[in-house]
Design a protein around this nucleic acid. Structure first.
Length: 879
RNA sequence: GGCCGAUUAGCUCAGUUGGUUAGAGCGCGCGCCUCACAUGCGCGAGGUCGCUGGUUCGAAUCCAGCAUCGGCCACCA
């Protein structure tokens, strides 16, 4: 490396991120640094991205999620792994379809007006228009994905994977079609899985209805029209006589015929201990009905309106019908009483419409056997969930898993590969499209439903790598190394991937699962569009720089705790980037005459040995923290090292050699220490702050073409130097003690103090003497070392680790003024003491005030006494 | 109802397996435009670690109970 010199004026004293970010990302991408190579002999390391909604845009959660992944993948890539970060996007069935439906609505059209084929074409068009946004934004974030491998859940290849898995599950009898009670959203007109139903507490009326000889309570009187039974607990003596009877109950619209059954599901202590059984509109009732052979009567339709079976209420909205029926029952004297009641109602996760339990024919995956394997994999440690606490949640959900309804009444998605024979209705599931019945040659009709979005995302770790084909990527990178995701999709996604991965590949889809927390606003509120408190990551990146934004998220990403993001935080880390920038500016502008070889030959002085030792410790800490996914600790370790040690101490010390041209050997040695420390630090920091580190690194003497592919720092044992650390601790302690006195005594920073240092057992004279000039400069004090010294008059005392330091005050501070100040403070303290004592002495206070108030007052007095004593002591030395 | 988490400085949070004087950022006070950086430098104030009890030589840390807040799950109509 040739000697170089940079004029400090040539580099801005502010780090300006925009230009740097724009310059480096395209270079990295063009040079192919993001690409993994399945033929490489390096150890593979892979991450699949949680696919964002293809038509979405980057929100703060993506910011955190992808920054963490980028930190890991960049670190591993630098550390010599064959690293693949597999990117892609999700078609997000219902979400995307709703957006396009809204666009149509703006044109005054409904999707039915276009027809299915045309509608789907419109969605594809929308996908093509908006699909690039989130990818561009991820690039803006610095994400080092292998973009040449970008996948989409509805790509030809991934669709083939979906169909293949569907067929295999069908052949294995793990997919079935059944009439079952489902969560139905009357607005979206589709079935929802249990996970897609949000619960919300609502106030309701608990209506006690007279049912012939019995009385029972319900919050849903309108479903009375669909009652086909009554149920009581088998052991409930009160109602035993009715069990088995069929009752004709006079009701609002003629009589209702119900059979009384005994079922364990009934809680005899709740309400009257009798429940009405409406198998058509309640999941519990549906189960009871199945157990006892009660018929299903559907009185509410898929549109949320009462059906023809509801008699005179037919066509009425379900909630209006509820009111009307209560009115009618009141009129007929069928209501015993009404009580207020608060309970959870199910809402559609997309549109918040109250979900209607309805019986309909849907496709299901019997996930129970798959869940068993998924549980085993975690128990056996083949999948490690971090933080550990989430494993219990995972087990609990897997243990209680129910069949997964996978059909959705949408047009956007993977259409179910099943055909019905027009002749006998037989079902034919096929890898290829059918035009006629394989059994009888009759015409066939394809099932119109599409699959739940999570079906295709569940295949993501292997479908993106080429499955069902046996590709080099699949062989090299499956199972993946790490999955980084948020806790809110553990069940939706992580659990499904675990089940599908084990079922299809016979191997876990990932080894480690890191679950990160939620990013909230500065007040701790969940960000939401309706609250208007959404922080736009792009704005933050523009305002403070991408590196600062990334570093903020990482620094705040403590395990198991939500992140409160505020501008002040990002600003703080923007300042950190600026600090680093200026440290680099100092180094770069003092490299004239630099000779790397000569620098290496030189003998490092104490400070150089110290900073090198601290650097090794930092490298070790960062590696350990990243290994354990303690991102915040890793970031904190670097921050502390760069600012608190390298800048605050080493750069100040280095200036001594840099600015003094009388010792060229020392200068070159120090230049070398500076370059080497800074260069290593940049590599250590690169995964967190990719842009600024590359920019500075390129300007520094370095080896290689980019920091992105430079080696990640390793701890060099022989550079760990406990002796240097001990000795520097003494020097720093003395400096701090003198600065402390300067601060307390309000001595101007420009004034040079004179200090006598009396070494103690921990700090031999030789050590202090050897570093006297260092101390002198850092503390701005003329230092005399004297083991026999005793404290002179008019001096301030500092004590550190057995060393005594006497700082002369004569001529430096106005002793008279200082005396006055001390006297004034002593007086104030004494006044406070006197006041406090008087208060305590007053009987009405001492006897009547609460004990803690009295204690507090006593404490205050004691504090003031201690302060006074300290001031008096100071005064004696100043006097 | 079940499970989980949180409670530490004015604010937001760190604090690995129990171990000297409990840390950081922001904010606050004092002094500084010291030739890398005022997005900065030096110094300082500020904490009964939610409460009660227990284990221990020793507890912010482990155990039990309580209080407050938050989250997830759940078919009590």
């Amino acid at each position: 490396m040739s000697p170089q010199q940079t004029d400090p004026a040539a580099i801005s004293d502010r780090y300006e991120p925009a230009a740097v970010e724009e310059r480096w990302y395209p270079i990295w991408e063009e040079r192919g640094y993001f690409r993994a190579d399945p033929a490489s002999s390096k150890k593979p390391y892979s991450i699949v991205i949680p696919p964002p909604n293809v038509t979405g845009s980057l929100h703060i959660g993506h910011g955190l999620n992808n920054t963490l992944q980028d930190v890991m993948i960049r670190m591993k890539r630098m550390d010599g792994f064959n690293a693949l970060w597999q990117p892609g996007t999700d078609h997000a069935g219902i979400a995307t379809q709703v957006v396009v439906e809204r666009q149509l609505a703006a044109e005054g059209k409904r999707k039915e007006d276009l027809g299915r084929a045309e509608f789907v074409r419109r969605v594809w068009q929308w996908k093509d228009e908006s699909g690039g946004t989130i990818i561009r934004q991820l690039k803006r974030l610095g994400a080092s994905c292998d973009w040449s491998r970008l996948r989409f859940t509805m790509d030809e290849g991934l669709s083939r994977a979906v169909r293949e898995v569907f067929v295999r599950l069908w052949d294995d009898k793990l997919i079935f079609r059944d009439d079952y009670i489902v969560n139905w959203c009357p607005r979206c007109e589709t079935v929802l899985s249990d996970l897609e139903v949000d619960r919300e507490e609502r106030d309701a009326e608990f209506v006690y209805i007279k049912y012939g000889p019995l009385t029972l309570g319900t919050v849903r009187p309108e479903t009375k029209l669909g009652d086909t039974g009554l149920a009581v607990h088998p052991k409930d003596k009160r109602y035993r006589q009715y069990v088995g009877q069929t009752l004709d109950i006079p009701s609002v619209d003629g009589t209702v015929t119900v059979r009384v059954v005994a079922d364990e599901a009934v809680d005899p202590k709740f309400g009257t201990g009798v429940i009405k059984v409406t198998p058509g509109h309640d999941p519990t009732d549906f189960e009871i009905g199945r157990r006892h052979g009660l018929p299903v009567k559907t009185v509410i339709g898929f549109d949320g309106k009462m059906t023809a079976a509801a008699g005179k209420y037919a066509g009425m909205d379900r909630f209006e019908a509820r009111k009307q029926i209560v009115e009618d029952m009141k009129a007929l004297g069928l209501i015993d009483r009404i009580e207020p009641y608060r309970h959870a109602v199910g809402l559609c996760y997309r549109c918040k419409t109250v979900v209607e339990p309805l019986v309909s024919k849907q496709w299901y995956v019997n996930v129970k056997p798959l869940a068993q394997e998924a549980i085993k994999a975690v128990r056996a440690g083949k999948i490690k969930i971090i933080p550990r606490g989430w494993t219990k949640t995972y087990y609990h959900w897997m243990d209680n898993i129910r069949p997964w309804p996978i059909s959705r009444q949408l047009w956007w998605g993977h259409q179910i590969p099943a055909w019905y024979c027009e002749r006998d209705g037989s079902i034919h599931v096929s890898r290829t499209d059918l035009t006629s019945c394989p059994d009888c040659g009759s015409p066939v009709r394809r099932d119109p439903d599409v699959l739940d979005t999570w079906f295709s995302s569940g295949l993501w770790p292997f479908s993106t790598l080429g499955w069902p084909d046996d590709t080099p990527y699949l062989r090299t990178f499956y199972p993946t190394s790490l999955l980084v995701t948020s806790f809110d999709i553990i069940f939706f996604w992580v659990a499904r991937m675990a089940m599908f991965g084990l079922y299809v590949m016979k191997q876990v889809p990932f080894h480690d699962v890191y679950i990160h927390a939620l990013v909230r606003d500065a007040e701790g509120q969940k960000m939401s569009k309706s609250k208007g408190n959404v922080v736009d990551p792009l704005e933050l990146m523009t305002k403070y720089g991408t590196d600062a934004f990334r570093f903020t998220l990482v620094a705040l990403a403590a395990q198991g705790r939500d992140i409160r993001l505020s501008d002040e935080r990002v600003e703080g880390y923007r300042n950190f980037a600026n600090k680093l920038w200026n440290a680099a500016r100092l180094v770069l502008s003092n490299l004239d005459g630099y000779d790397a070889a000569a620098g290496r030959r030189g003998k490092p002085d104490l400070a150089a040995r110290w900073i090198d030792s601290r650097l090794q410790a930092t490298i070790g800490a960062v590696r350990a923290h990243l290994k354990a996914y303690r991102f915040n600790d890793a970031a904190g370790a670097i921050y502390q090292f760069v600012w608190g040690e390298f800048c605050d101490w080493y750069l100040e010390i280095a200036k001594l050699d840099l600015y003094r041209a009388d010792d060229p050997t020392r200068r070159v040695a120090t230049q070398h220490a500076l370059v080497s420390t800074l260069e290593t630090t940049l590599r250590l920091l690169h995964p967190f702050m990719p842009f600024i580190t590359e920019e500075i690194w390129q300007r520094l003497p370095h080896e290689g073409e980019s920091i992105m592919i430079a080696p990640y720092p390793k701890v060099v044992r022989r550079r760990v130097d406990p002796e240097a650390e001990r000795e520097m601790a003494v020097v720093m302690g003395i400096v701090a003690a003198i600065r402390n006195i300067r601060g307390e005594m309000r001595v101007a920073p420009g004034l040079t103090l004179s200090a006598i240092v009396k070494p103690g057992p921990e700090a031999p004279s030789a050590l202090v003497s050897a570093n006297a000039s260092l101390i002198q400069t850092l503390a701005r004090a003329a230092v005399t070392v004297d083991p026999q010294a005793s404290r002179p008059r008019s001096s301030a005392l500092g004590v550190v680790g057995g060393i005594e330091i006497y700082v002369a005050l004569e001529g430096v501070v106005d002793l008279g003024a200082e005396r006055q100040r001390l006297q004034k403070e002593i007086k104030r303290a004494e006044d406070a003491i006197a006041f406090g004592r008087a208060k305590l002495a007053r009987p009405e206070f001492a006897e009547r005030a609460p004990a803690e108030v009295v204690d507090k007052e006593r404490e205050k007095v004691a504090q003031q006494e201690a302060l006074r004593d300290k001031l008096v002591a100071s005064l004696s030395w100043v006097g």
